[in-house]
Amino acid sequence: MSITFLGPLQEGGAQLPFYSFKVPAGFPSPAADHIERQISLDQLLDIRAPHVYLVRIEGSSMEGAGIYDGDLAVVDRSITAEHGHIVIAAVNSEPVCKRLCKQGTQIVLKSENAGFPPRYILEGDELIIWGVVTFSVRSHDPKA
Rank of each mutant, 00 (worst) to 15 (best):
K143Q: 05
E63M: 12
E58W: 05
F18E: 11
K22Y: 02
S60R: 07
S2E: 11
P8Q: 13
K102A: 12
D69C: 01
Q106H: 08
L109M: 02
Y68A: 00
V23K: 06
A90K: 09
G7F: 06
Q10I: 06
S111W: 02
P95Q: 04
I129Q: 00
T105A: 11
S93K: 10
K98C: 03
R77A: 14
G13L: 08
M62W: 08
P28Y: 03
Y120E: 14
P24F: 09
W130T: 02
H51F: 03
T4I: 09
T4M: 06
I3Y: 00
I107L: 15
I86C: 06
I67Y: 02
S78R: 04
R37N: 11
H83F: 01
R37F: 12
P117S: 13
I67W: 02
I47H: 02
I86Q: 06
R48N: 10
S29L: 12
Q43D: 13
V23E: 06
L6N: 06
R37A: 15
V133P: 07
V55L: 05
L44M: 14
S20E: 12
I67L: 12
A89Q: 01
G104T: 00
V87Q: 03
K110L: 13
P30R: 12
M1E: 01
Y120N: 09
E126S: 08
A73L: 13
T105W: 00
I3W: 02
Q15C: 04
R138P: 02
I3G: 00
G131D: 06
D69N: 13
H83D: 15
L6V: 04
D69A: 00
L6Y: 01
V91Q: 00
L41G: 11
I107M: 10
G26P: 01
M62R: 07
R48Q: 12
A14C: 09
D42Y: 06
W130A: 06
A31H: 15
L44F: 14
F116H: 13
G131T: 08
L109W: 05
R119G: 01
N113R: 15
A14R: 15
I67H: 01
L109P: 05
N92S: 03
G70P: 08
R77T: 13
Y68K: 08
E123T: 06
H83R: 03
A73H: 08
F135G: 05
P8N: 12
A49K: 14
K22E: 12
A49P: 01
S2H: 10
G131W: 07
S40H: 03
S2Y: 07
R37H: 14
G104M: 02
A65P: 05
R119W: 09
R48K: 13
D33F: 14
Q106K: 12
D76C: 04
F135I: 04
G84W: 02
Q106D: 12
E112F: 15
S136L: 09
K110P: 01
G64N: 09
E63S: 13
I35K: 15
Y19W: 14
A49Y: 06
T4F: 05
I86M: 07
E63R: 11
G64I: 14
G131S: 06
D33R: 11
A65E: 09
R77D: 11
D69S: 07
I121H: 04
A14T: 13
R37D: 11
N113D: 14
A90M: 09
L54W: 00
S93G: 00
T105I: 04
A14P: 08
H51R: 11
S93F: 00
S139E: 02
S2T: 10
P95A: 09
A81C: 03
G26R: 07
F21M: 06
S139M: 05
